[in-house]
């Protein structure tokens, strides 16, 4: 299970939207293999009868009332930290490349 290939790492990098260099992919392929080998031992004790725990403190039904809050931002505040904005909207590059 701990066999990780460079192709897999490249695929993961694409899923995670990180433009890793070839060198990084090679390096991570080795490291990830080692790390996965170490962490795989969880399966030794994770038997079917053990329920998973996703929250350390079990709470439920935490809701808020349907009332507008005091933390509504102005459009100026909303875009203040943006790398690029056009008035009150965020600007992003074209979504599709030319070939599409």
């Amino acid at each position: 299970m701990s066999e990780i290939t460079a192709e897999q790492v490249a695929h993961l990098a694409n899923l995670a939207r990180i433009a890793l260099t070839e060198e990084e992919i090679a390096h991570l392929t080795t490291e990830l293999g080692q790390i996965m080998q170490a962490v795989e031992k969880v399966s030794e004790v994770a038997t079917p009868d053990v329920p998973p725990t996703s929250h350390p403190i079990p709470l439920q039904n935490v809701f808020r009332a349907d009332v507008v809050g005091a933390d509504v931002l102005t459009a100026e505040q909303a875009v203040a930290g943006a790398p690029e904005a056009d008035g009150s909207r965020f600007v992003v590059s074209a979504i599709l490349g030319e070939e599409q």
């Binding site: 809701f63 808020r64 009332a65 349907d66 809050g69 509504v72 931002l73 009150s88 909207r89």
Partner: peptide, 24 residues
């Protein structure tokens, strides 16, 4: 108007957290 119905949660600002609307 654009981006006026916004809290830090709607923008996914670092540190913001969701809380479920009971009426929903």
């Amino acid at each position: 108007a654009p981006n006026t119905l916004i809290t830090p949660v709607c923008l996914g600002l670092p540190g913001s957290l969701p809380v479920v609307n009971e009426q929903a």
